[in-house]
Design a protein around this nucleic acid. Structure first.
Lengths: 220, 220
DNA sequence: CGCGCTATTTTGATTAGTCAAAATAAATCT
DNA sequence: AGATTTATTTTGACTAATCAAAATAGCGCG
């Protein structure tokens, strides 16, 4: 059995390798795990000995197929737990991430599958993040963000990729959750601002950085 | 925050002090936690430094009020989780103990209270074990067991105090769960046997040791 | 009273995971 | 190319939790 520390390393490598080209630099991994770089190096070498990752010294680390499988299972637990906490226990979507960080290492595969059935085999969690299937398949479709999409067309929010409580609370307040419809009325690169128009109510101003964390698709 | 190791020590001390007279001997604690005695001594001294237990060298250990509060919360989490796993996820009562051993250290107070509400504030778990209240009150009524109760009177099972999967599976199979009605038809001390009569079906023979782990009350 | 048994405590080592700080390699910039 | 900056790795040390085995304390018993 992998310790929760090992599970966390693998999960973070998986998440970071979505952005980078598959090779995750040590610095990024260390930052993401909130450890000093030396710790990450040491640990990654141990993971490599166990066959869970491939380490290219001075370049970065990538998951082996076995490591990827472990990471996907952890991610599946995390996202199913979040879905449970919001849909069944009616918790606020801003607070469930921290909870799931703990629970993802404590629930067995048996509980996982019961939970999955209870929730009706969901494919995304409350933030719109895709839930890996039991076999490790995960939707990896690429979406535009509010910082990059076309202006003045009807859009549908598909995902909010920010785990911080503050941002999620703000998003909630302004109806910025998966499924919501809106348009981007304009974008000011110099000021780093985006203006959103929800179907009803006042326009919403947003920083470009924040806008980049909201993924959208063309919405009818 | 107490580590799961610390939580486990406190929980085991709490459970063992119900049987003994409050002072738990190191040997019993070590056995219960499945560590060698020296480890228990070392750890208990550390817990004493933190004010969670009082250690009487060479005699035993007891919880301080603070330690007791932590232990009761852990126990509350354990038993509410078991109840959730059986009542909501429909898992088998024989397998939930092992699951709860992990989850009891991973769920926050926020989740705990949501679960409590979802379950309707239960006072016992699926095995009949009392669930400590949010304030740390726990029913500690003393019951007779099938090894000690009167013969040939209607009884009601209130609690099954054995966590092993094998025993619980056997009990399940024979309808020996909390709420079930039965009588003890006879008891053979020499052979170490007890014979039970359920309302319908064949009599059930049981060892005295096993009978001692089923608590009963007079049943109408 | 002293002897030996048993439970407990001590001592010295080990493992997983971490940090601080020094050493090294690679990349960048004149 | 040579010098400087930046990322990574190495080294040495630390903490929490554990075990094995030796030392000790208490107890009961002859």
């Amino acid at each position: 059995m992998a310790s929760s520390t090992v599970e966390n390393y693998l999960k973070h490598i998986l998440l970071l390798s979505e952005t980078a080209d598959g090779l995750v630099p040590m610095g990024a991994l260390a930052t993401s795990l909130d450890v000093v770089p030396g710790t990450a190096t040491t640990m990654v070498k141990a993971l490599a000995d166990e066959g869970l990752v491939a380490h290219r010294p001075r370049q970065g680390v990538r998951l082996t197929p076995e490591g990827r499988q472990v990471a996907l299972t952890v991610l599946r637990k995390h996202r199913l737990v979040e879905t449970f906490l919001v849909n069944v226990l009616k918790m606020d979507w801003a607070e469930v991430h921290a909870e799931a960080e703990q629970l993802e290492h404590a629930i067995s595969d048996a509980v996982l599958n019961r939970l999955d059935a209870l929730l009706g085999h969901p494919t995304t969690d409350p933030h719109g993040d895709p839930i890996p299937s039991r076999l490790g398949k995960m939707d990896s479709q690429v979406y535009a963000t509010l910082a990059t999409c076309v202006l003045d067309r009807p859009l549908r929010i598909v995902r909010v990729t920010d785990q911080s409580e503050e941002f999620l609370q703000f998003a909630e307040q302004n109806g910025l959750r998966p499924g919501a419809r809106l348009r981007v009325v304009d974008r000011n690169l110099a000021a780093g601002l985006v203006n959103l128009r929800p179907p009803t109510g006042d326009p919403i101003p947003l920083s470009l950085a924040a806008a980049g964390r909201i993924l959208v698709a063309p919405g009818k």
